[in-house]
Write a protein that binds this DNA or RNA. Structure first.
Lengths: 328, 328
DNA sequence: TTGTATGCGTTATCAT
DNA sequence: ATGATAACGCATACAA
């Protein structure tokens, strides 16, 4: 049986409403009584009952995150960041790994203050039978006007990378990316490459588009190995993800290519580079901290009831460092 | 504003206590009224308020999962399975990625019925300041008597693998595993290898212990490449994880070794092998479905208030298939 | 400054 | 078979 404010009241010899005020640090209660009550609460290991509180306040200070694909690594870093930011505003995040439909139902029953949905396709969202009382924010689907959405412009990111390579005189530029799944995020990157290179269909220029079988380091390694061992005169590679890039670097070093002298690389990326690589990577993308800030800010806004702007698209930045050099 | 049983009552022209009974499918209410009420509830998109319910029932039918390290892939498959099993008993799981201390606090405030803690070290657990009203089950720490624990005998698993290889005449057996972190689970596997081989310290026989820099496919690939290119006469490899094994297979095939003719491999593993590899792997470990069943069963038991057996250790199985053959 | 009373949405008990 | 009412833990408007 857990301890309630009434227990504290009994110990302190005051009424339980005084305890309630003291715990909420109300100015309506004298310093001495307040400290005394706080001390007793501490000793008794009091934890406020969210159920009771959210019943009366109609607010739980909790944000539900629907996350059907726990297996994916990239979003998990983002979630951690968002969680930290929301914590600063005294909100807690709770994740559900159920199917989207039942995750939303659960969060509604729990009366969370807002729901964040991660990387579902637009079709899944439109097929939802459920109507949610709680406001929902979607991340990682294509822009759409009928519900609030926040996303990253991946197409433009890759385009920026290619454009930059071209301005520093590269012509034989290859794209290594994962096209094995139906993941729209990965497809978007290819589209950016095609657009920047002025290619209509991938089949028009298959020699410079190297599809991988996944997003792991080894997938990048295999793709780069096959590309670089062939005798195509590639001078630059645009990589679809940080992990793929790590594999590419490994392949290049095995073949004896120096970065950026023999080969330039720009990596799509929005995660901080913890790992110490041989080269500091030139990257393009939206920094993950910026994404996290936007998402948590938007969540707080829609909780306030102010209808936030629908369809926010974050624009990528090119961060030029060492893995990329102009052609003579 | 969300719809309550009172709203339904108004629409149906009955008292709200009747609605409550109807929704809970009580036999105390007539068929016609029941169906009518259910229909209205459906139309109005009614979702029961967990706060109110758990306040009076002192039960939320929810299990909190403390999961501070979202980034790791292996446990996520396990969580998904546990979630499915609990769902069959009409329990919902909610994950928290906060630090253990605040995750437990949150779950206590939410009055979840039980908490499952994933892969913390014993030290962290002993340092917890917080006292939890809610029963806690720990997974993936060393056995300990003072709180309920469930874990897998990894040491024995690797030992079984080595023993088996020795009975089929292998002598030059190598171990490839991740020793880069302080993860006790990985250390345990090494201990099993040392024990089975009769080695005191790793430094006594460094040529057959190949540490990797992580648990990814590529880490296994690199380790195997260096091991197999050297001229040590290794006839069998015991691998610390499924991903490492994938890398090892890749390296072997590049070098031109046929499995199991030229090289036997036993992989530690407790995940189902979705991927189609060239060889069906001989594995050792506790099947993940069995782990999930034990965990969810134990959770339900401790919720009932029956003090479950402390420190359950699941014993591994050897599953002999194709990647392993006797030496002539 | 402190105490009393009311209501949040639901279940459960009791009366009709 | 249905309705009225108390109780769960808490916040808050109001009374003292």
């Amino acid at each position: 049986m857990s301890v309630t404010i009434k227990d504290i009241a009994k110990h302190a010899g005051v009424s339980y409403s005084t305890v309630s005020k003291a715990l909420r640090d109300s100015p309506l209660v004298k310093k001495p009584t307040k400290t005394k009550i706080l001390k007793i609460a501490e000793e008794l290991g009091y934890q406020p009952n969210v159920a009771a509180r959210s019943l009366v306040q109609k607010k739980s200070f909790t944000i539900g995150v629907a996350w059907p694909s726990v297996e994916r690594v990239a979003p998990s870093i983002l979630i951690t960041k968002i969680n930290d930011l929301l914590e600063e505003h005294s909100y807690t995040t709770l994740l559900s790994i159920n199917k989207l439909e039942s995750a939303i139902a659960t969060f509604n029953r729990f009366q969370v203050d807002a729901i964040l949905v991660f990387g579902e396709t637009e079709e899944e969202i439109n097929n939802l039978k459920i109507q949610s009382t709680v406001p929902i924010l979607y991340y990682g689907i294509e822009q759409h006007s009928s519900f609030p959405t926040i996303d990253v412009n991946r197409r433009l990111a890759i385009k920026i990378a290619v454009d930059y390579l071209q301005t520093i005189c590269h012509q034989h530029i290859a794209f290594i990316g994962d096209l094995s799944s139906t993941d729209p995020m990965q497809k978007d990157k290819l589209l950016g490459f095609l657009e920047a290179m002025g290619i209509e269909r991938p089949s028009d220029s298959p020699e410079f588009i190297v599809p991988t079988n996944g997003l792991e380091v080894h997938d990048g390694y295999l793709a780069a190995k096959s590309l670089l061992s062939s005798n195509k005169q590639v001078t630059a590679i645009v990589s679809g993800s940080y992990d793929l890039t790590r594999g590419i670097l490994r392949a290049a070093s095995e073949i004896g290519l120096t970065i950026p002298t023999d080969l330039s690389i720009i990596s799509y990326d929005n995660i901080p580079q913890a790992e110490n690589l041989d080269v500091r990577l030139t990257t393009v993308g939206v920094p993950i901290t910026r994404i996290a800030q936007h998402i948590s800010q938007t969540l707080l806004t829609i909780i306030e009831g102010e209808t936030a702007e629908n369809s926010i698209i974050l624009e990528p930045e090119l961060s030029i460092v060492d893995s990329c050099a102009p052609l003579p």
